[in-house]
Amino acid sequence: MTPSQYNICVKQYADGVYRFIMKNLRNSDEAQNIVQNTFEKLWVKREEVNFEKAKSYIFTIAYRNMIDVIRASKRISNIEDYHENVMSASITEYSGIKTAIEKIVNKLPEKQKSVLMLRDYEGYDYKAISEITGMTEAQVKINIFRARQFIKEKIGSINTLL
């Protein structure tokens, strides 16, 4: 990849990476750091990275970096905590369907949230997501399926109560 192609990558993908990390971590400073680190790594490795595969490379680096940050800050809740959080999510705090969906998405386990975002925000297919996350294609699909089912059920329950 040439320096010019690197600059094109910055212009084309920096927003997408930032959005992906920001939506996952909900921390602007950490998201900015990860984007910065990701592109620094891309710059260092630019001669080894094929321009056509740069987007996938960028998201892979950013995703791994994000997982490290999450682990370091112990943000990954265990399953019990996760279910507790979900169950205790108050229906009354939802105002508007978009806000409600956002809050429900934030309750998803990290893996489900990440694959769903890569799928919907970036339009990646299962194979590309599996390359970025290190999951198998089947795992990617099942995680997206579970994420959608979870969101659907939660919205359904809100609708029923309202």
Binding site: P3, N7, D15, Y18, K23, V35, F39, I97, I151, K152
Partner: peptide, 29 residues
């Protein structure tokens, strides 16, 4: 059920942008 399923597709938040792109841009050298 289908109406609910369609709501599970996340919408891109175009307002979320990375402001420091200029800092990442490199001289072509």
């Amino acid at each position: 059920e289908w109406e609910l399923m369609k709501l599970t597709v996340l919408e891109v938040d175009e307002n979320l942008i990375f402001d420091n792109k200029d800092k990442l841009i490199k001289s072509t050298g």
